[in-house]
Design a binder for these strands. Sequence first.
DNA 1: CGGGTGCGTTCGTCAAGGCGAACAGTCGGA
DNA 2: TCCGACTGTTCGCCTTGACGAACGCACCCG
Lengths: 210, 210
Amino acid sequence: MERTLTETDPTQPAPEPPVDAADGTAPEAAGPLAHIAAALRRERQKAGLSLTELARRAGVAKSTLSQLESAAGNPSVETLWALSVALDVPFALLVQPARPQVQLVRAGEGPRFAADRADYLATVLSTCPPNARRDLYLITAEPGPARESDPHMPGVVEHVVLSTGRALVGPSDDPAELAPGDYIAYPGDLPHVFEALDPGTTAVLVSEHT
Amino acid sequence: MERTLTETDPTQPAPEPPVDAADGTAPEAAGPLAHIAAALRRERQKAGLSLTELARRAGVAKSTLSQLESAAGNPSVETLWALSVALDVPFALLVQPARPQVQLVRAGEGPRFAADRADYLATVLSTCPPNARRDLYLITAEPGPARESDPHMPGVVEHVVLSTGRALVGPSDDPAELAPGDYIAYPGDLPHVFEALDPGTTAVLVSEHT
DNA sequence: CGGGTGCGTTCGTCAAGGCGAACAGTCGGA
DNA sequence: TCCGACTGTTCGCCTTGACGAACGCACCCG
């Protein structure tokens, strides 16, 4: 076993994470096996389950589970999946290492998102550090015609928290009027709008790429 | 093969997703193999890679890759990992299906988080629908002594966007003073503070459980 | 002291995943 | 038309993951 996981192919575009660059812990290439072992044991103990019990619930041989927690071996997806279901934790948690970092973006500073209109401005606060699949935007908008967004990738969910002003936000066929502090989430793969009703309307947008 | 993946163990606490309940698409239990096949082919074609080329980059036999895209077989984590690296997509994307839903929470409505102090109020906007591992809070705070948070689980990252007022936010040893629109992210497993400096300070907090 | 029960580990067997090679099919140029 | 380079598929072989049973250990109760 032991395949070449560390290969960084030079011909690959390498999307260049705009914000959130260097990460302290080992990046994705470090290999998931050791992390799986640790995560598996940690989550199992957190759930207060014995190795035997978890194996029974997941329908996995406890010998297999034992070996996995010893970082011996390379589980199949189906096996690991069964364990994640039995533990009721997201699959990714068992596989993906974490990455901590402090990141600060001042109000005016972040890279602007392609502003197709003068009265609508989205500042990127945090794009997904390769594995987290969520983007954070700060929206600033002025009253005007509704901004219709084309639907994105299927599986995208958008969360909007209105900070100041008022706005009509949500699926195009049934948007909600938000006041400061209001929150709405909707599937991003449906057509949706953001229409500011008050001047100086601002909002926080979290876009999850699932 | 074909293990019992759908098992919903009654003895399991079943954390009861507080917000964001029913989901349209097949939930996690549907089994990842079919999704992997589709995602693999989709991502490969999106990247404009041939099967041969991707196999070479990932260090995987192209026969293996071919079978995976045909939904034949149950790849090992290491294999799938190598492919996710070569494709430069998050591992989870290859495995997890999506879940869409519209969700609206009015300013005063969401379930309050255990307010240990009168001048600090966190409203839960969206707890992680079992698999998304991130919480959304609306913070309302008044000037007063700094609110020190005990460090959480390792791997937790908190994102704060200040909406109104001013606040001192971040790691306890080096917090940043935020003005409206400012953004900061920091590892949640370090001690950190949230200290409002202006009356009526509000912020959006995204807590990622990795 | 037996001898239950639970834990987590190690053993040997069997099936299945991963591999390279050989295979069919398509496009483009000499 | 033939050739070469490319695509993605299918074919045996061998390694390895997953399994059940047996094992060593702690604990508790009669």
